[in-house]
Amino acid sequence: MAYSMVVLVKQTPDLNAVRVDRATGQPLLGDQLVMSSADAIAVEAALQLKEAHGGEITVVSAGPPSVKDVLTRALAMGADKGLLIPVENPNVLDTLAMAKIIADALSGTTFDLILAGQHADDYESGQVPAQVAELLGIAQVSWVTKIEANGGELSFERDTEDGKQGVIASTPLVVMTAESLNEPRYPSLKGIMAAKKKPIETASVSAPAASGAISWSAPMAQSRPSAGIIVQDKPAADAAAELVAWLKSNKLA
């Protein structure tokens, strides 16, 4: 069966460009805004399902006008259309407020699967997809490392502390993709050209005000214990013994 799919993508600072100002402890985010790496994996998963079974992929992003860039990138990778949910400053909203906006924007659409990265690169909460699932009243499968589709029933492997858990679930479903699920493709030149003709709709949702129940401080660098222990000019057995003792005293071994 062909799948009607929604992929949630978040625009984040490029984590590789983030530096910390040593004097102030404040992060320097750089100018580069990118698609959160886990969400690129979700886009790739949707593309692979579409290639194998057919279907349609709508990519959805909530944020300021700049999120059009991540939607365009997903379209260039091969998604069919975009939905931009205008939210002027998404970073003042908690995940539940954001989930409500997304669930609201999706409430009129029909879909088999909503895919999203396990968590975003910047805040790493990993909460929005599960909260969207709860608000829409559908099931979720998280930490997914393998997807096998058999019509309306899909089997998954998911990461757990005990190993890979195998599960079966029916659509509609929210799927959160783990890092090891796939390697996202780069858009081809042809894809980039095609993306220019693909539609990006703007959703009309009324953004709820930030919840008064939760707020947060600007991020600051944590202090790292400065000078480390250095063992030098000692026989390997002695150096190893000192390390093992240190690991044990720090409850690491």
Binding site: L96, S125, S142
Partner: peptide, 23 residues
Amino acid sequence: GTTAGRDLAPRLAARLQAPLAAN
């Protein structure tokens, strides 16, 4: 902060409309 805890907490926070902080 296990895979189960991180799966469960947002679901219940949405159900009970509670603020949630991760990790």
